[in-house]
Write a protein that binds this DNA or RNA. Structure first.
Length: 288
DNA sequence: ATCCTATCCTGGCTGC
DNA sequence: TGCAGCCAGGATAGGA
C-alpha cells in the first residue's frame, strides 16, 4: 500500500515531468475521486494553471499551482490503497481504472489511476484543510527522539494503532509500522506509556532507518498494485522482516512470524524478538 | 481518552 | 470448473 516511501518515490519521479507545465484540459471519469468538488469547478480551477512544484507531505502528493505568476491553490493526491499516478505521452493506454486525467501543455498527461476508487485528487485553496491535522514528518528534524518519548508517554494507546495514527506521526502505514516495531524489538500490543526511554529511542531510530531504506528501494510492491510512475515495482519487499511473512522464519532468531489482528489491521511480528507485554490477568477464584 | 464498527471499493483468494 | 463469500486496507465518522 502506498505509504511514505511509495509516495515519496511517486513525487520524485513525476516532479521533473510536471514542473513548469500548464494544465490544458481535464477529464473526470469518476467524480468521487475529486472528494466532493464538482467536475466543473475542478476543471475551472485547473485549466490554465501552471505547476510550480511537486512535493510530499505524509502520504499526500502536493502540487503547487500558480496563475499569472500568482499562487493559485494546490492539487493534492492521496493514493490510499491502490492509487497510481503516471505522467505519460499522449496516447498512453491508461487502462479501465483511470479516474482523472490532466492534459498538459507539452502533450503529456497526468493519469490518476485507482482500482478500488478510494484514492482522491483534490483541488484546494487552503492546504491546511487537508494537511493541517497531520503529525510530524518522521524523517524531518521536527521528529526528535525526545519529542517522541514524551508523546508516547502522554498517551495510553497500543503502539500499533498509535503509529498508524496520522495525527501522531505522519506517513507510516501498516507495512512500515510492523517493520519498525520488529526492528525496535517492541511488541505491537505494548501500551505507549509503558515504553521505556531506551525503547522509545530504539523505535525512533527504527522508524527512520526503515523509511530511509524503503525510499532507497523505491517502496514496496508485493501485490498487483503499487508501481512507481515508471511502472516498475519497488524493491523493499525483498527486505521485509515480518510484513506478509506469516509462518516464515524471523530474520533474526528463526522463529515463525506470527500474524494477529490489532485495530482491524493485520499485524506481523516475532514473538521471540518482540516480547509480549505483561497481560493483566483476572485472578481466578478457584485458583489452586 | 480510547476503542470498536461500519463505510467506501474491487480483484483475488478460499472453500465447497 | 464455477461461484458465492470473504478479505485486504487508509481514512473517517459515529457510537460505546
Amino acid at each position: 500500500m502506498p505509504e511514505l516511501p511509495e509516495v515519496e518515490t511517486v513525487a520524485r519521479l513525476i516532479r521533473p515531468r510536471l514542473a513548469g507545465r500548464s494544465v490544458r484540459g481535464v477529464l473526470v471519469r469518476w467524480k468521487r475521486t475529486l472528494g466532493g468538488m464538482s467536475a466543473r469547478a475542478f476543471e475551472q480551477a485547473l485549466v490554465g494553471a501552471r505547476i510550480t512544484a511537486v512535493w510530499r507531505r505524509a502520504k499526500f502528493v502536493v502540487i503547487d499551482l500558480e496563475r499569472d505568476a500568482q499562487p493559485a491553490g494546490w492539487l493534492v493526491g492521496h493514493l490510499r490503497m491502490t492509487g497510481r499516478i503516471h505522467v505519460e505521452p499522449a496516447g498512453w493506454d491508461a487502462s479501465a481504472y483511470e479516474r482523472v486525467r490532466l492534459e498538459l501543455d507539452d502533450g503529456h498527461a497526468l493519469h490518476f489511476i485507482d482500482v478500488r476508487k478510494f484514492g482522491r485528487l483534490w483541488f484546494t485553496r487552503d492546504l491546511n484543510e487537508l494537511l493541517g491535522a497531520l503529525g510530524p514528518e518522521p524523517l524531518s528534524s521536527d521528529f526528535t527522539a525526545a519529542w517522541f518519548a514524551q508523546e508516547l508517554h502522554a498517551r495510553r494507546r497500543l503502539l500499533k494503532p498509535l503509529l498508524l495514527d496520522q495525527s501522531f506521526v505522519a506517513g507510516l502505514g501498516n507495512i512500515y509500522v510492523d517493520e519498525s516495531l520488529h526492528r525496535a524489538r517492541l511488541h505491537p500490543l505494548r501500551r505507549s506509556d509503558s515504553v521505556k526511554p531506551v525503547e522509545s529511542e530504539r523505535l525512533h531510530a527504527a522508524i527512520r532507518a526503515v523509511l530511509t531504506r524503503a525510499i532507497e528501494r523505491e517502496g514496496s510492491s508485493f501485490d498487483a498494485f503499487y508501481r512507481t510512475p515508471e511502472g516498475k515495482p519497488g524493491g523493499y519487499q525483498d527486505e521485509f522482516a515480518v510484513y506478509d511473512r506469516e509462518g516464515e522464519p524471523c530474520v533474526t532468531c528463526k522463529s515463525a512470524i506470527i500474524k494477529i489482528v490489532v485495530g482491524q489491521r493485520g499485524t506481523h511480528f516475532c514473538r521471540t524478538c518482540q516480547r509480549a507485554p505483561r497481560t493483566r490477568r483476572r485472578r481466578s477464584v478457584t485458583a489452586p
